[in-house]
């Protein structure tokens, strides 16, 4: 449609443009600039060129942080995705009991990370209920969060508990798009539940799998609350993943330059992840895809 006056569209977009400019684009540019300075927020910034990036790389901090973030994310994405799919397929039934259990699983995604993190600290406490249960069946209890070998995986486990409901509801939406007639046809051919899953559900759900994997990967890359509340990056930095590393640089070490350099690296990582997502998703808009295959 033509606007009534040529300036109308610009006026309507102006507030949005200002907010996006001030709080998204400008900060990105400032972070890029700050990453070339050494600045402690108290004395004037000093130009250091690419030293911040070099230092992050040489000290091994970048590689270490990236490795921990990738490890954490891999566990979270794979486990929550697999569990979410299993739950979606099992719980995709009419009836109040199923609806209630679906709601229970998804509720963890709605509750705050702080509440979930505190709750699991209580459960994972060396004197807590999990250790007591393990001791009762003859296994040793452990201080999972105090042990550098287990802390990151404990955080990943808690995150899986939190976001499995997300994967489940996306898979449930994907399942709605698979025509019942395909299952009936497969059943007529004598296919049992496992074969129906392998030959009907899985191929038609593949675009949804790609969507869940990439979105939860991006989500887990941004994890912070669970680290801040449960371990503060420790013990011995074993849970210092990306966003927590940025936070530590600016709020504990007062190194704006180093923090900004990490921000910029982090931004390009997310950009790469999104590029992968778009590539995987291209031409595979789940709904259309399912329908055209069904025809």
């Amino acid at each position: 449609m033509n606007p009534r006056h040529a300036w109308h569209p610009y006026a309507l977009l102006l507030p949005t443009a200002i907010f996006l400019g001030v709080f998204f684009l400008l900060p990105l540019a400032i972070a890029a600039k700050d990453s070339l300075y050494a600045w402690d927020l108290l004395t004037p910034p000093v130009w250091v060129g690419l030293d911040n990036y070099r230092a992050l790389f040489r000290s091994g901090e970048l590689v270490g942080t990236l490795a921990r973030t990738l490890g954490y994310s891999a566990v979270v994405v794979l486990l929550s995705g697999a569990l979410g799919l299993l739950l979606a397929v099992t719980l995709d039934r009419p009836g109040k009991v199923f609806a209630f259990v679906r709601g229970a699983v998804f509720s963890a995604y709605v509750v705050s990370w702080v509440a979930v993190a505190l709750l699991w600290m209580l459960i994972l406490d060396p004197d807590g209920i999990l250790s007591a249960a393990l001791r009762a069946i003859g296994l040793p209890g452990r201080a999972w969060l105090a042990d550098p070998a287990t802390a990151l995986w404990a955080l990943a486990g808690v995150s899986v508990w939190k976001i499995t409901g997300y994967a489940m509801v996306i898979f449930l939406a994907g399942l709605q798009d698979i025509p019942r007639s395909l299952y009936e046809a497969a059943a007529l051919d004598g296919a049992g539940p496992l074969r129906r899953f392998r030959h009907v559900t899985w191929p038609l759900l593949r675009p949804t799998v790609a969507f869940v994997t990439t979105t939860s990967l991006i989500l887990s890359f941004q994890a912070f609350d669970v680290v801040r509340v449960m371990t503060q990056g420790g013990p011995v930095r074993s849970t210092t993943i990306f966003v927590y590393a940025i936070y530590e640089h600016i709020f504990m070490n007062l190194r704006v330059g180093r923090a900004s350099a990490l921000c910029i690296v982090f931004f390009f990582l997310l950009l790469a992840l999104t590029a992968i997502q778009l590539r995987v998703m291209r031409g595979a808009a789940p709904r259309e895809h399912a329908r055209s295959r069904a025809r």
């Binding site: 001030v22 709080f23 998204f24 684009l25 400008l26 900060p27 990105l28 400032i30 972070a31 700050d34 927020l41 941004q222 912070f224 990306f242 966003v243 940025i246 600016i250 704006v256 923090a259 900004s260 921000c263 982090f266 931004f267 997310l270 950009l271 999104t274």
Partner: peptide, 14 residues
């Protein structure tokens, strides 16, 4: 594509 985790340092100084 720009989450708060990328912008918070400059937004904080701004």
């Amino acid at each position: 594509l720009i989450p708060a985790q990328v912008t918070f340092v400059p937004v904080f100084t701004l």
